[in-house]
Every structure is written in C-alpha cells, then in structure tokens.
Simulated assay, not measured.
Amino acid sequence: MGGFDRDWLRLRAPFDDAARDASLTRRLAAVLPDEPRLLDLAAGTGANLRHLSPRLRRPGQRWVLADHDPALLDAAAAEMAACAHPPPAFETRRVDLSRDLEDLDFRLFDAVVATALFDLVSADWMDRFVAALAAAPRPLLVTLSVDGRLRWSPEDPGDAAMRGWIERHQATDKGFGPALGPEAPHRLADALRARGFAVETAASDWIIGPADAAMHLALIEGYRGAALEIAPEGEPSAIEGWAERRRTAARAGTLETLVGHVDIFAEPR
C-alpha cells in the first residue's frame, strides 16, 4: 500500500510496532545464542531491526539487511541514527530476492526474519523459500502478513466492493509472480509444518483510530489507486465516490479501520 518509499515506511512504523505480537518475539529471543547473527529479508530501511533488536536482549547481535532497493538500504544508516536506542552492528546487502534467493546461505545465520513480505510473494517463491530454510533449518519470525480482514467503521455502502478490488489487486504480481495476498499466512504455516517446523501464529492487526488521519488518508489513496488499476470501465466513479467519502470521514476524525495481519514463528524440531 502506498508503495515502498521511505515516507510510507516511516508512517506505518508505529502501527507496525503496536500490532506485532510480543509473545512471538519472546519465542525468537529464547532460542537465540548470546551473539546471534540475523538475516532480515526485504529489510527496507531497517524497521525490523529497530523494533526487534532491543526486545531480543542480546548485546552481541549482528544483522544483515537484505533488500533489492539500494535507496532504502542507503537510508538505513540515517534511520538508525534517529533510533531511541543504540542499534546493533549491521550491514546491508543488495539482493534480488525474486531471482537470487538461493544465493543467501541460511547456514551463516542463527535466525531469519521478515516483515510485510510474504503476502507479496507467489506460491512458487514461497515453496523455494521453505525448501531453502528446511535445508539449513533456522528459526523464522515473519510478521505483518495481511490475511484479508479489512473493516471500516462506520460502514459505507461501497466497502464490500472495495474489499473485493483490494483482494484482487493483492493477488497481482509484485515482482515474485502472482502474489498469495491474504492466503499467505496459512499457506506459509502449512508449508513450514510439512517440513517439520513447529509453528505458532498470532494476530497482529493494525488498529487505526479517529485521530490517525494521515494513516487513513495514505491507506485510502493506496486502496483507491489499487482498485483503479484493475477496475473495468464503469467502476471508477464508484471507487472515486468511496474514496471521497472515506477521506471526508478521516479528516472529520470519525473513521476507524482494522487491517488484519498475522505473525508467524517457526522453529526447527
């Protein structure tokens, strides 16, 4: 939603932080050695590191931030400098995950983490990932995968149609082939269990309140743009009408939104 530019990542960060399931973070922390080396897939500007590192309580952490976007990776150092806590040691690595996933040697790491990634990938890519992880079994923490639950309050007559457009767009190619979208959490959990991992899941929903106008407006624009990309002739006016009504409610401080996500922790048996 809203692309993957730095402003959007910064805007969503507090909602991500509030949504993440703390118990699964503790489960990851419990299986790490004293000086763990962690691989963060699709790391962007390092939001996962900034959230997890103080909660893992391992002073000797070393992170590798892997992403295809050099601009985001270049911004990581500046984002870390603004942290409220000193960041651990980290390096960035530019990797095209869609093409070069197997070039990452999971044996070099004590855990693999990713956030807001797996709903973007295809079934084929997910199978490749799970096979690679099973070949070098490591703990995995995947956070904030959308699961299809999307509710606005108060309701609007256009909500059901918009949910349909959004789900259709979530299934389009995001660079990895046809995306799993809301199917991703249960597909990933099932695939990991089939490979012998013990898997725990937990809800990690965004709760966007009446005072969160900037987040509402960004989501509305993202949903509007996604729907317009794939809507047939005759639908745009309905989409624009929905977006305008929702913008009005957001600016008036009367809109609330729930965006459903799931966190997953998997541990080799």
Rank of each mutant, 00 (worst) to 15 (best):
F4K: 10
W8C: 11
L9H: 02
R12I: 08
R12S: 08
A13Y: 13
A13L: 13
F15G: 11
A18Y: 07
A18E: 12
A19D: 05
A19Y: 06
R20A: 14
D21A: 15
S23V: 13
T25E: 13
T25F: 13
T25A: 15
R26C: 13
A29K: 07
D34L: 12
L41W: 00
A43P: 02
R50K: 09
R50N: 10
S53F: 06
S53Q: 14
R55V: 15
R58G: 11
R58S: 06
P59V: 05
L72V: 11
L72P: 04
D74S: 15
A75P: 05
A77N: 05
A77E: 14
M80E: 14
A81C: 10
C83A: 15
C83S: 15
P86R: 08
P87F: 03
A89S: 10
D96V: 13
L97E: 01
L97Q: 03
L97M: 08
S98D: 09
F106A: 09
R107I: 06
L108K: 12
F109C: 05
D110Q: 04
A111P: 03
T115I: 10
T115K: 02
F118K: 01
V121Q: 00
M126V: 06
M126I: 01
F129Y: 05
L133H: 01
A134L: 06
A136T: 12
P137M: 06
P139E: 00
L140F: 10
L141W: 02
V142P: 03
V142G: 07
V142I: 14
S145K: 01
D147M: 04
R149F: 07
E155M: 12
R163T: 09
G164W: 02
I166G: 03
I166V: 15
I166H: 02
E167Q: 14
H169W: 15
A171Q: 07
A171G: 10
A171Y: 02
T172M: 15
T172D: 08
D173Y: 12
K174G: 09
K174V: 13
G177W: 01
P178V: 07
P185A: 03
L188R: 01
L188P: 00
A189Q: 00
A189W: 00
A189H: 00
A191W: 00
A191L: 05
R193T: 08
R195M: 11
A202G: 12
A203P: 11
S204A: 15
S204I: 08
D205W: 00
D205N: 08
G209R: 10
G209T: 12
G209L: 11
A211F: 13
L217R: 04
L217F: 07
A218I: 02
G222F: 03
Y223A: 15
A226H: 04
E229F: 12
E229S: 14
I230S: 12
P232R: 09
S237M: 13
A238V: 07
E240G: 14
E240T: 14
W242Y: 03
A243V: 03
E244N: 14
R246F: 06
R247H: 09
A252Y: 10
A252I: 12
T254R: 13
L255E: 05
V259Y: 04
V262F: 02
F265E: 03
A266M: 05
R269A: 14
R269I: 11
